[in-house]
Amino acid sequence: MTVSDGIAEIRLNRPERLNAINPDLLSGFAAALERAEKDPGVEVILICGEGRAFCAGDDLKEFHQQSSGKAETRRFIEDIQRITELIVNGEKIVVGAIHGWAVGGGFEWVLNCDLAIMAEGCRCFLPEINLGLFVTGGISALLPNAVGLQKAKAMILFGEQITAKEALDMGLVYRVAPDDRVYEEAVATAARIAGLPKLARRNVKKVLNRSFQLSLADAMKLETDATVDCFLDPETAVRIGNTEIS
């Protein structure tokens, strides 16, 4: 994490795996979010990804470690859910600079952001069901709220790719920017937020996010149980074994 002009920049940093999610990335991400929340010099949090993608979702090469037993699997899924809790329930507004790919858990983190700026060339989708898995990140509450129940079901069931423009049209991101400008646009947005009255801007996040908090909390509990069961399903191991990301 780096801090400049009141903006804490947190950068996912596994570029060789398209910033795919594993325990080390989760622990580092959570620790950085916690530090940013506690730092009185931080006004806004900016999250982005190193390399060619924001985040390619769960690292399928580590699936067998993630699904080695129910306790280990639950711990891994709860660590994923912890990121959502920190982004959504933290006091400080979180801006996302999203490029390349935002897949699975990476796409879920985009939807957790208070304001996300997405590169024109970015592609997003939720592949979990086709892999025998289940969504996390509060998506079972957040996505229907954003796009409607039937559209949310279709996006989760079929896992079809959507473009940045489609994400914008559905209200899933705040703004779309040229690929070579997305980071600068996100920094400018964060700086604009940092210049607003502190208490007022924090109340915007607190009040609007609490409007769905009960359903979000319940949804995340159900997601965790469903995802743990799916990780431990033998059919999922077969599907994961036949899937590669590049």
Results as ranks from 00 to 15, higher is better:
Thr2Asn: 15
Glu9Met: 12
Pro15Gly: 15
Glu16Cys: 08
Arg17Ser: 09
Ile21Ser: 02
Asn22Trp: 08
Gly28Phe: 08
Ala30Lys: 02
Leu33Trp: 05
Arg35Ala: 14
Ala36Cys: 08
Ala36Thr: 10
Gly41Ala: 11
Val42Cys: 07
Glu43Tyr: 05
Leu46Cys: 05
Lys70Thr: 14
Arg74Ile: 09
Arg74Ala: 10
Phe76Asn: 05
Arg82Asn: 09
Ile83Met: 03
Leu86Trp: 05
Ile87Leu: 10
Val95Ala: 02
Gly96Ala: 02
Ala102Ser: 07
Gly106Ser: 00
Asp114Arg: 10
Leu115Tyr: 15
Cys122Glu: 02
Pro127Val: 03
Gly132Gln: 05
Gly138Met: 05
Leu142Thr: 13
Leu143Val: 14
Leu149Gln: 13
Lys151Thr: 11
Lys151Pro: 00
Lys153Ser: 11
Lys153Met: 14
Phe158Leu: 15
Gly159Asp: 03
Glu166Arg: 15
Leu168Phe: 14
Gly171Met: 08
Gly171Val: 07
Val173Glu: 04
Arg175Ser: 09
Arg175Glu: 11
Pro178Val: 03
Glu184Pro: 00
Ala194Cys: 04
Arg201His: 08
Arg202Ala: 13
Phe212Pro: 01
Gln213Trp: 11
Leu216Lys: 04
Met220Ser: 04
Ala226Asp: 07
Asp229Trp: 12
Cys230Leu: 14
Ser246Met: 13
